Amino acid sequence: MDILGMIAENLQAVKEKRPLVHHITNYVTVNDCANIALAIGGSPVMADDREEVEEMVSFASALVLNIGTLNARTVESMIAAGKKAKELGIPVILDPVGVGATKLRTEAARRIIEEVGPAVIRGNMSEMKFLAGMNVAIKGVDSVADEQDGQAIAENLAKQLNCVIAITGKRDIVTDGQKTCFIDNGHEILSKVTGTGCMTTSLIGVYCGAGKDWYIGTIAGILSMGIAGELAQAGLAPTDGIGMFKVRLFDSIYNLSTEKILSKGRVIGG
């Protein structure tokens, strides 16, 4: 079976299993992450208190950790939930939002990687170059790094951290250190809406929660957002803007089908 066929099967598993995905995430985008997970067919829960995260993650099929809006309390909750998930064999998906921008973000990402060992790390080029030990310019939580040597950086980081690495941008790169693919779906308007990266990480969590192949689950989450972005943009009227685009994006994820994955997916390699 080719890679699009495996992604289509993963989507079908999502619809059938409705995996529970525990999020400790960015409060700027938490509602959008919950709704995108629901739209694709998952069951999101947003719980970040240290007193309940280990119990909550025990019920889950995947754990999403997003460091977009950090404080000392949630860092400890992330570590506790992550360790429990690892103990139970539940995949942990890390979104190291803005790592390198501040000492707190950098230290939080380092601790999660060292103490939890995520199954998947998804970020933009600046974030991944920073995790790889390279000197990069940081502008808040946005990527300002060029995409040069992206494949080598991703593959080396995947081998070093023993996880799936996804670098999202104009052309997305996903690798487990042995297999690598490139995803060419998407539209530039996705970058005009806050939280599309966070929502993509949530989609990865849902797909990984429904399957056992984190590499395929990661590709599936990114590809789904890319296809939905294209469909949402194509449905806009000349006077529509990013508000209507966001509405149509959720509708496109909700209506995503195996047929659309197979007909519209543009994945190279794998």
Rank of each mutant, 00 (worst) to 15 (best):
A80R: 12
I165M: 10
I138Q: 11
T74Y: 06
L236G: 02
K159Y: 01
M56I: 15
C208F: 06
M128G: 02
F250R: 14
V21L: 02
G177A: 00
A109F: 09
V53A: 00
G117Y: 01
V30M: 15
D2Q: 10
E155L: 04
A80Y: 03
K212T: 15
A232N: 08
G197Y: 09
V174D: 01
Q178V: 13
L38P: 00
K264D: 06
A101H: 06
A109W: 11
I165V: 12
V193P: 11
V164M: 05
S143V: 09
A234G: 00
A34T: 05
C208E: 05
V92I: 05
S252F: 00
S224Y: 06
N10W: 00
T106W: 04
N156F: 02
K170Y: 11
L65W: 04
V53E: 02
L65F: 04
A34H: 01
G197M: 09
E127K: 06
R266E: 12
S77T: 12
L262P: 04
A85L: 10
I165D: 07
A228E: 14
T74F: 04
G211H: 00
A109P: 14
Q151W: 02
E16L: 14
L94C: 02
T201Y: 02
G221F: 05
R50M: 08
L231W: 02
A34Y: 00
I3K: 12
S126M: 07
T180Q: 01
F130Y: 14
F182C: 11
Q233C: 07
L20W: 03
I165W: 05
I90L: 01
M78Y: 08
S143Q: 12
G195I: 15
T194N: 07
I222M: 12
N255E: 13
R111W: 01
D2Y: 04
L65D: 04
L231F: 06
N10M: 08
M1Y: 08
G270L: 06
L223G: 09
N124Q: 10
C208R: 14
I189S: 10
G123H: 10
A210M: 05
D176F: 02
A154D: 10
F250S: 11
A220D: 03
V75T: 13
G197A: 09
E259D: 15
I67H: 05
R266W: 03
V45S: 15
E147Y: 15
D184Q: 13
V116N: 01
V64H: 02
Y27A: 06
P118D: 04
A152D: 15
E54F: 01
A152P: 03
C181L: 13
S58I: 10
I24Q: 03
N10H: 07
G150A: 11
V99Q: 00
A152R: 13
I165A: 09
P91Y: 06
G140M: 07
A62N: 08
E155S: 11
A237E: 14
L262A: 05
L131W: 00
I189Q: 07
N185E: 04
